[in-house]
C-alpha cells in the first residue's frame, strides 16, 4: 500500500519546526523514517503533516565527556555505534547498537527516534532505562528533561506530548568499577529479538559482585529493568547465585505468546540470557578495574 496524502515541511531550524508543530497537533516528526515510513505505507499512521527534521543541523551531534554521552535527534544508529569517544565513555551504547536491525537500517535510523518510538522489543529504549538516561523535549512552550523511568507509559507510547520534539538524549558514563554486556536471541541476526538482556555489574576491589542490574526486551510491555543484586549475597558467580538471579528475573517479567515464540520459551530465554550476560558483565568489570589499576 502507499501512504495517505500529507503535507510536508522541512525546516532548517528547530525554532521553525517547533512553531509548525505548535500549530498542527496532527503533525508527526519524521527522523530516519525506519519505523514511521512503514507505518505510513501500511496506513497504520496517517498524519496531516510531516515535519522532516533531517536538515536541522543543530540536532546532528554526538558529544562525550567524563560525565556521559549526549546525542542529538539526528545521530544515526551507525554514527553513534562507531563514535570512539562515546564508546569509551559508555561502552554499552555501541554494544547494543550493533544488535539494532541491519547496517542498512542503521545508516538512516536515529537512536533518539528509536528511543521515543518506545518499542519494548527495541534495544535502545531498554538501554536508556538501564543506564538511567534522560531525554530533552522541546516545544514552543519551552524545554523539559524527562528521565528514562518517566518516558515509557505503555506499548509504543512515550510521555512526549504533541508539539514536543525530542532534541537530545543523555546517558551517564560507565563507572570504572562496573562492566556491561548485552545478548539476545533472534530468528535471524538483525531481526527484532525474541528476548534480549543487558546487564550492569559493579565489583568491589576484590572482584566480588557488589551490584547487578539487568534490562529486558521483548518480554514486557514497556522497557523493564530488574535489580538482581540480592542473588549475589556472597559476591560470587556460583551456579546457585546465577540460578537465583535468573529466578528473580523470570518472576519479574511478563512475556506474551505470538507467532514467533511462546511466552514460556521467552521466559526460558530470559533466564538463560540473564545468567550469560551477568557472567559476561562481571568479566568486563574485572577487565576494566584491572585496566584502570594498570
Amino acid at each position: 500500500m502507499k501512504p495517505a496524502p500529507f503535507s510536508y515541511l522541512r525546516p532548517t531550524t528547530l525554532a521553525e519546526a517547533l512553531a509548525a508543530y505548535a500549530d498542527n497537533a496532527d503533525a508527526k516528526v519524521l527522523a530516519g523514517g525506519q519505523s514511521l515510513v512503514p507505518l505510513l505505507s501500511m496506513r497504520l499512521a496517517a498524519p496531516d503533516m510531516l515535519i522532516d527534521i533531517n536538515r536541522i543541523a543543530e540536532l546532528d551531534f554526538v558529544r562525550a565527556d567524563e560525565n556521559g554521552v549526549t546525542f542529538g535527534a539526528l545521530a544515526r544508529h551507525a554514527v553513534l555505534e562507531k563514535d570512539e569517544t562515546a564508546r569509551r565513555a559508555q561502552p554499552l551504547l555501541s554494544k547494543a547498537l550493533r544488535l539494532v536491525a541491519h547496517p542498512t537500517i542503521r545508516n538512516q535510523g536515529t537512536t533518539l527516534g528509536s528511543i521515543v518510538h518506545a518499542d519494548a522489543a527495541a534495544e535502545m529504549p531498554m538501554v536508556l532505562v538501564l543506564l538511567g538516561g534522560t531525554v530533552t523535549a522541546e516545544s514552543a512552550r519551552g524545554s523539559r528533561t524527562i528521565s528514562a523511568g518517566d518516558l515509557y507509559v505503555g506499548p509504543l507510547e512515550s510521555s512526549l506530548e504533541s508539539g514536543e520534539i525530542a532534541t537530545q538524549a543523555w546517558v551517564p558514563a560507565l563507572a570504572a568499577d562496573t562492566g556491561t554486556a548485552i545478548d539476545e536471541v533472534s530468528r535471524r541476526h538483525g531481526d527484532y529479538a525474541l528476548c534480549g538482556v543487558a546487564a550492569l555489574v559493579g565489583v568491589g576491589q576484590d572482584g566480588a559482585v557488589r551490584s547487578a542490574r539487568a534490562g529486558y526486551l521483548s518480554v514486557t510491555e514497556t522497557p523493564a529493568t530488574v535489580d538482581l543484586s540480592e542473588a549475589f549475597g556472597d559476591g560470587t558467580l556460583s551456579p546457585a547465585n546465577l540460578a537465583a538471579a535468573a529466578d528473580i528475573a523470570m518472576a519479574a517479567i511478563d512475556p506474551e505468546t505470538d507467532i514467533h515464540a511462546t511466552a514460556d520459551y521467552r521466559r526460558h530465554l530470559a533466564g538463560v540470557l540473564t545468567r550469560r550476560v551477568i557472567a559476561a558483565a562481571h568479566g568486563d568489570a574485572l577487565a576494566r578495574t584491572k585496566g584502570v589499576a594498570a
Partner: peptide
C-alpha cells in the same frame, strides 16, 4: 515495501539505504 526484504536497496550518497523507506522529497 516496509524495509524487511532489502530488494529496493540503493546507495544514498554512497551508503546502503532502503529506497522504500525514504520519501522522494527528503
Amino acid at each position: 515495501e516496509h524495509g524487511v526484504c532489502g530488494a529496493c536497496t540503493i546507495l544514498l550518497d554512497g551508503a546502503p539505504t532502503r529506497s522504500c523507506l525514504l520519501l522522494t522529497v527528503s
